[in-house]
Amino acid sequence: MGLLGAAIGIGLAALGTGIGIGILVGKTVESMARQPEMSGELRTTMFIGVAFVEALALYALVISLLLIFVKG
């Protein structure tokens, strides 16, 4: 049961993260197309945003690892 929970957990987390990062990068590309001179700043902000969104998926990864590898 622990393995099943771990798999479902990380799957859902990957789903949410995929949507979140997809929206984020899409908006960044759109803004870069509108205003190419701001590209550097936009890219930096995008990386910070991606790190925030990925951190949420990594919380789920840590819980999944706990479920798989720690007995009892």
Partner: peptide, 15 residues
């Protein structure tokens, strides 16, 4: 973290 090496089977990447 107290890793018990439980569900990894033959290969446990956490070791």
């Amino acid at each position: 973290m107290a890793e018990g090496g439980g569900g990894g089977g033959a290969m446990n990447p956490l070791h």
